[in-house]
């Protein structure tokens, strides 16, 4: 483990966690490019049908929120996701990296 690369990791974690805390307050709640395009090009009845359809597999924190916890829950959900991605990619990298 190179010390400079560990510094890069800590800086990355700090930046990612700051974004996690800010995102629920700063992020736009407007539909994204795909949803917005869908709203414009699909007729209303079909769009309503698509919007009502449930995901095939349910998720524990849909829409980056924790039920009943409001903005704090959103911060926690995004921070948890950030740490999960961090842990998985670190573990994956360790398991799969080039063996000297």
């Amino acid at each position: 483990m190179n010390a400079n690369n560990m510094k890069f990791l800590y800086a990355g974690i700090m930046i990612a966690l700051v974004i996690s805390v800010l995102a629920p307050f700063l992020a736009s709640s407007d539909p994204d490019g795909l949803e917005s395009a869908a709203g414009g090009v699909i007729d209303e009845a079909r769009m309503a049908e698509l919007e009502e359809s449930e995901p095939v597999v349910g998720s524990p924190m849909p829409d980056y929120a924790i039920e009943g916890l409001g903005k704090g829950g959103e911060v926690a959900a995004i921070a948890l996701g950030t740490l999960a991605v961090l842990g998985i990619s670190f573990g994956f990298g360790k398991a799969f990296n080039k063996k000297a």
Binding site: M1, F8, L9, G12, L17, A27, V85, F90, F96
Partner: peptide, 27 residues
Amino acid sequence: AKNELDEMKVPILAALAAGIFAIQAMN
């Protein structure tokens, strides 16, 4: 990853992955 990712670079990969997950929440 198996051929090119050496152990030194794992922290860089993890940092970028975490940062990208977070920034994807920032619409």
